[in-house]
Each structure stands twice: as structure tokens, then as C-alpha cells.
């Protein structure tokens, strides 16, 4: 059975009651894993507390950091500082230079772009850089849902082109809700139908972008963050004097 993942659920973490209502909703909608963006300076105890709340609802909480760097220098500085603290790092590319740097950096997991179709920098050059790293393209449902009439047309068209490019260059695509309000949360199968019909994708692909692709991304990162990880392909399987 598929395990559905919503890698971008913008949940208020200060108010635990509200946090719980988001988590409960995600669980009843059929998700098994949710990615919650957290502040960079969050303490480990707080993360454990949030994870235990999510566990009560049979949800696996993924810690995520959303970076919005204004320059490439700023991006590199933040990646150096926070990469080992969070399971998923997403970069909202506000400029072409940042988009290019994020695409070629292996520490970036998700490439995220703004709603404005003119300021989405995912083109062939970006895809070629991203294909040599590990970054995936993230598409949020909320961006389409809240776009007003004429802009929505351009946005859907733009995202359709981006996905075609991404698939051509073997770049993983991740669909998420991007919901910051319960009103924007949808069941995974509704989201799959929404994306597959609007973006000319097969149902199977859309379902994979909501389940297997984000799940494998998180598992890969968790493996890297574990103590047994040494380098890609090398991990410690046993410690002690009898090795």
C-alpha cells in the first residue's frame, strides 16, 4: 500500500493545539508522513516534542528548513550551518543566480519557486545542473489554488513545461500541498487527480510524486544523518573490538 507524503505543511508550531489540529487533519486525510518547516534556531527538545505529537496520530514528522536566500553567498552559509540539523532543506529561488547555485549543490533537496510565472527559473540549464546533484523540483498545490484568474493559466502552463523538462532530465518531482491553513489541505488522491489532469501527467506518476519520490528523498537523507553514515555507499554496520 502506498504511503502518502505531504512534504510541505506550514504548521504553527508555537500553538500546540493548532499544530495538533493540522496533524490530526493530515492523518485523517490519509497521509503517513508530513514535512513541517521549522525555524532554523529550533531546539532538539522541541523537535522531539513535535515528533511525539505526530506519532500519536500515526504520522511521521519530517523536519524541514525553508531557505529564502537573497544571494548565493547567503545560501552557502546557511547550507553549511544547517544541513546536518534538518532532514529536508528546501530553497526558494528568488533570483536566477540563487536558483543555479541551489541546483548544483548536493546539499539542497528541494527547489521551490514563487507563484509568479515570470520569476520561476526552472529551465533546461537549471535542469542540467540539478540532474548532476540530488535536488528535486517541488510543486505546491496552494500556489495554483490561490492564483487569481489570468495568472493561474500562465502558472499551470509554466509548471507543465517545468515538469516536462524535469522528467526529460530525470529530476525527481515532488508534489505537496503547501497548506498554511486547513482549508488548503486535500486528500492525496484528490491532489493526484488535480495535478495529473492539469499537468498532463499519468495518474501513476502523480501518485508517485506524492508518495514514493518524497519518501525515498526523506529516507536517503535520514540515512545520511544517521551515525552509521560515512560517505555515499559506505556505512558502518558493526562497531566494537570483534570486527
Amino acid at each position: 500500500m502506498r504511503k502518502f507524503v505531504d512534504l510541505h505543511l506550514i504548521v504553527p508550531i508555537k500553538n500546540l493545539a493548532e499544530f495538533e489540529s493540522f496533524i490530526r487533519k493530515a492523518s485523517t486525510l490519509g497521509y503517513k508522513m508530513v514535512g513541517v518547516p521549522l525555524p532554523a534556531n529550533i531546539e532538539k527538545e522541541k523537535i522531539e516534542q513535535l515528533k511525539s505529537i505526530a506519532k500519536n496520530f500515526n504520522l511521521d514528522l519530517v523536519t524541514r528548513l525553508n531557505l529564502k536566500p537573497e544571494s548565493t553567498g547567503n545560501l552557502l552559509k546557511n547550507l553549511r550551518r544547517y544541513r546536518r540539523k534538518f532532514e529536508v532543506i528546501s530553497v526558494r529561488c528568488l533570483s536566477k543566480a540563487v536558483a543555479r547555485q541551489a541546483a548544483k549543490d548536493r546539499r539542497v533537496d528541494l527547489l521551490d519557486f514563487v507563484e509568479n510565472p515570470r520569476k520561476r527559473f526552472f529551465d533546461k540549464a537549471e535542469a542540467e545542473l540539478a540532474s548532476n546533484s540530488l535536488a528535486a523540483l517541488e510543486v505546491e498545490a496552494k500556489q495554483i489554488l490561490i492564483s487569481p484568474f489570468p495568472r493561474r493559466i500562465h502558472l499551470i502552463s509554466r509548471i507543465r513545461t517545468e515538469i516536462k523538462i524535469a522528467l526529460k532530465y530525470d529530476i525527481p518531482v515532488v508534489f505537496s500541498s503547501g497548506a498554511d491553513n486547513l482549508i488548503y489541505m486535500r486528500t492525496p488522491r484528490d491532489l493526484a487527480a488535480f495535478f495529473s489532469t492539469l499537468l498532463d501527467l499519468s495518474k501513476e506518476d502523480a501518485l508517485n510524486f506524492l508518495s514514493n519520490v518524497p519518501k525515498s528523498l526523506v529516507e536517503r537523507n535520514r540515512g545520511k544523518l544517521s551515525e552509521s553514515f560515512v560517505a555515499p555507499g559506505i556505512r558502518i554496520v558493526k562497531r566494537g573490538s570483534d570486527c
Binding site: 489554488l145 486535500r186 484528490d190 487527480a193
Partner: peptide, 13 residues
């Protein structure tokens, strides 16, 4: 038209 209807249901805010 099931997927079309599902998409339309999803788009209601």
C-alpha cells in the same frame, strides 16, 4: 471524467 471532477472538487476553496 472522474479525475476531472476530482480535480474540480480539489480546486474549490
Amino acid at each position: 471524467a472522474l479525475d476531472m471532477v476530482r480535480a474540480a472538487v480539489c480546486a474549490v476553496t
